[in-house]
Computed example of a mutant assay.
Amino acid sequence: MVREQYTTITEGTHIERPENQAVYKIGIYGWRKRCLYLFVLLLLVILLVNLALTIWILRVMWFSPVGMGHLHVMADGLRLEGESEFLFPLYVKEIRSRADSSLLLQSTQNVTMNARNTEGEVTGRLKVGPQMVEVQSQQFQIHSKDGKPLFTVDEEKVMIGTDKLRVTGPEGALFEHSVETPLVRPDPLQDLRLESPTRSLSMDAPKGVHIQAPAGKIEALTQMDIVLQSSDGTLMLDADTVFLPELALGSQGPAGSSQGLYEVCACPNGKLYMSVAGVGTTCHEHSHLCL
């Protein structure tokens, strides 16, 4: 146990203390104290600078309770006012403009929109470049307001769902292969031309080809042959007058015998020629024209 010793001092008693008694000061003094104050002052300056920068960033970026600047956070998504520039890819589910304005996508090079599947592969792409608009997809469709397909393109066919297809180019329409259509007609008061400059022109139909010009004439011009063929039927020329001015003509016969009358003769190969009319047929007299 520790033994405690106590000294009782009565009045009038004087006790001498040692002269070399050591005195210890408690606290931070000297250069340590100055460094501590300097460090605290530096922390205070940094705190004020950070606070000022934070307030400056909030004012510059236009932070508000509803969003940041022109970007507003809404219950159904984000709303962006004015013009915005995106430096990296933008992934969104839907982009819509305001009801009173249009949507503009602008780029100095091109605008590309990709559709990807769950594996990240591109399944559809729309690329608008400075010289061409490119669509990469299995099928491309354009619909009307009521949902009617107006234009459809896939790997096998092109379908136009409008009531009328109008080509306004001065050279008309150029088709490298066959064309199937129930009706071909020009604009009112305009001529219709079907032309093949270097090859033949063929019109086929299982139940017939109907060519009609109610207010004009029909011309067929060719360098070689014009073939009118009916596999099961009759070729009929129904008109008040039929002119065949370039038919081969047999000999005139005796003067005054035909009185200016001729008959049209047909060769076994279908060639036509004229022969002087007589009491009976004279076609056999000029059958050499069939050779």
Rank of each mutant, 00 (worst) to 15 (best):
Y91F: 13
D146H: 03
E156Y: 12
G77A: 05
M132Q: 14
S101L: 11
N110S: 10
R98E: 10
H143Q: 08
E121R: 04
Q106P: 02
G129Y: 08
N114C: 02
R116V: 15
P149A: 05
N110P: 00
V153P: 08
L78V: 09
E81W: 11
R79Y: 06
Q109F: 06
R79K: 15
L90N: 03
L80D: 03
T118S: 04
I142C: 03
Q106F: 09
E83D: 10
S107E: 07
L78T: 02
G82N: 03
Q139L: 07
Q131C: 01
V158W: 07
V92R: 08
M68V: 04
S107Y: 05
R98S: 11
E94T: 13
V158Y: 08
Q141N: 13
M159D: 12
E121V: 04
F86P: 01
Y91S: 11
S137D: 03
S137P: 00
S84N: 11
L71V: 11
N110M: 06
G69V: 02
F140V: 13
E83T: 14
E155F: 02
D76W: 12
Q136H: 05
L104H: 11
V158S: 11
N114E: 15
A99E: 13
H143T: 08
E83A: 12
H70Y: 05
L150N: 09
S97W: 14
V135R: 00
R116A: 08
V111R: 04
G82W: 07
Q139G: 10
V66F: 01
F140H: 02
R96T: 15
D76R: 14
S84H: 14
R98P: 02
E94R: 13
Q138I: 01
S102G: 07
L90Y: 13
H70T: 15
N117S: 04
G69T: 04
L103C: 05
L103T: 09
S101I: 10
S101M: 11
K157G: 01
G147P: 03
L126F: 12
V92G: 03
E83W: 12
H72M: 14
M68K: 00
L105W: 06
L80A: 07
